[in-house]
Amino acid sequence: MTNYTLEEKDSFTVLGLGTELKSDYTDYAGITKEKSDFWQVIKQDGRLDTLKAIATNDYIFAVNEAVNNKMMHYAGVMTEATVPEEHRVIQFPKGEYLIVRGEGQTADELSNKLTGIAFGQVLPEAKDFTYVGGPNATVEMGQRNGIVYGEMWIPVVRK
């Protein structure tokens, strides 16, 4: 099984700018394209830079959350501030989190790789814990030698 850890985390909030994902939840290619297009738009129009400017650290969150029966995807940061654009304060619960670490050539590649490992390998094979919903996030933590590194954080409960 892939390397992963379970870590206790205090509750935390992420301020996010979001988009509704319209692809069926089983359409991995469609979801991946929608997320990629969304990130490209917020990088080009400056909204991502606006978020980064008010962040309390260098982490960039790619958050997935079901809201009112809609599949939502957010670009977010940890901050106490707000932004003028429509945004959502995303509350992550205190508790145990599945942490999968990795790296990629780009933030998109990192996010896709970690999501695939977490939901395609670790969670289906897990015997002691399970994901019961709530927001989950890929956390871009920085770059080393041109490689983007980060983690996937998924709240889990013991079986």
Rank of each mutant, 00 (worst) to 15 (best):
V41P: 05
V41D: 08
V41H: 12
V41Q: 13
V41W: 06
K43V: 07
Q44A: 15
G46Q: 05
G46N: 00
R47E: 02
R47Q: 03
R47S: 09
L48C: 04
D49S: 15
L51E: 00
L51T: 00
L51S: 01
K52G: 02
A53S: 15
A53G: 04
I54V: 10
I54G: 09
A55R: 06
A55W: 02
Y59E: 13
I60G: 07
I60Q: 12
I60A: 11
I60K: 13
F61W: 11
F61C: 08
A62C: 13
A62I: 00
V63N: 01
N64Q: 07
N64H: 09
N64G: 13
N64A: 07
N64I: 02
E65Q: 14
A66I: 10
V67L: 14
N68D: 15
N69K: 15
N69H: 12
K70M: 10
K70E: 07
M71F: 14
M71A: 15
M72Y: 06
M72H: 06
Y74H: 13
Y74N: 12
A75K: 02
G76L: 05
G76A: 12
G76E: 01
G76H: 06
V77E: 13
M78A: 06
T79E: 03
T79C: 09
E80H: 15
E80M: 11
V83A: 12
P84W: 11
P84I: 00
E85R: 06
E85D: 13
E86Y: 10
H87P: 05
H87D: 03
H87R: 09
R88V: 10
V89G: 14
I90D: 09
I90C: 13
Q91K: 11
Q91H: 13
Q91D: 14
F92T: 01
P93M: 04
P93Q: 05
K94C: 07
K94S: 13
G95Y: 01
E96I: 07
Y97A: 06
L98T: 05
L98R: 14
L98V: 14
L98N: 06
L98D: 07
I99S: 04
V100Y: 03
V100H: 11
V100G: 01
R101G: 03
R101S: 15
R101E: 12
G102L: 03
E103D: 12
G104F: 12
G104D: 11
Q105I: 06
Q105E: 13
A107P: 06
A107L: 09
A107D: 12
D108Q: 13
D108V: 10
D108K: 14
D108C: 08
D108G: 14
E109W: 05
L110C: 10
S111Q: 14
S111D: 07
S111H: 10
K113A: 08
L114R: 01
T115Q: 01
T115F: 01
T115P: 00
G116D: 07
G116K: 08
G116R: 02
I117F: 02
I117E: 04
A118V: 09
A118K: 03
A118Y: 01
F119G: 00
G120S: 07
Q121N: 06
Q121G: 04
Q121P: 05
V122I: 07
V122C: 06
L123I: 06
P124M: 12
A126K: 02
A126L: 10
